[in-house]
Design a protein around this nucleic acid. Structure first.
Lengths: 109, 109
DNA sequence: CGCATATTCAACCATTCGGTTGAGGTACGC
DNA sequence: GCGTACCTCAACCGAATGGTTGAATATGCG
């Protein structure tokens, strides 16, 4: 997995990881708080966070015995820019955007 | 892989598949023409095209004995829109965009 | 100090992925 | 109609993924 886009896109490919990113959009979180809503072991979430971190999508800062996770939009921007190069779709249509977000939020997890 | 974004992002995670999409940006292509520049069996490329197709990123139309592959920007737009929801980065910076494209094109893949 | 909390490590497991090869199945050119 | 060009299928392979459990490692609290 040499190219940074490989890491970014394959990190984004997992719904658990996308959900984590969405949670981090609200605020920085400790690892166990990230894990809380998921029906999955803490170790599994820890691995997911490692993947997001290696992809550059988040950063983690150890403070005391808790490790804080913070969204890092730079890698996301690179991926977004790559996709914009397929600019055959016009600048984001806000109506479509809101409809999309609504359907996204009505999903499980 | 239930969510459509899963398919789109994991399809985008492979450099061969991103290269194929870039090629299709130029023009529609037959399967064997897509395969030509890659150091890989035709069957492997055929699989990649199947993945791109199932992800909705391309469509394939059989015409005679050749199957034409066509970029399908809709799924790409959905993925792009999802990323825009992390709108902490401002509207695409064109300078960064061009620098990015330059570095992307100088890559092997 | 001694215990609880927060997180990772290590080993393991089933499944998927990305590739190969070889054998088809169709459509076209002569 | 025969051969060839185009593409996929099927079986296989090694490596990576996404999860588990149990033990280990820090750090903070009383």
């Amino acid at each position: 997995m040499s190219h940074p886009l490989d890491a970014a896109f394959s990190a984004l490919a997992d719904p658990t990881r996308r959900a984590i990113l969405t949670m981090l959009l609200e605020d920085d979180m400790a690892v166990s708080d990230v894990a809380e809503p998921f029906d999955m072991s803490l170790a599994a979430i820890s691995k997911h966070l490692g993947i997001l971190s290696r992809a550059g999508l988040i950063t983690q800062e150890q403070r005391g015995r808790v490790k804080w996770c913070k969204l890092e939009p730079d890698a996301l921007r690179d991926a977004s820019i790559w996709m914009q190069s397929f600019g055959q779709f016009e600048a984001v249509n806000l109506d479509a955007f809101e409809r999309f977000l609504a359907s996204e939020l009505s999903d499980d997890r």
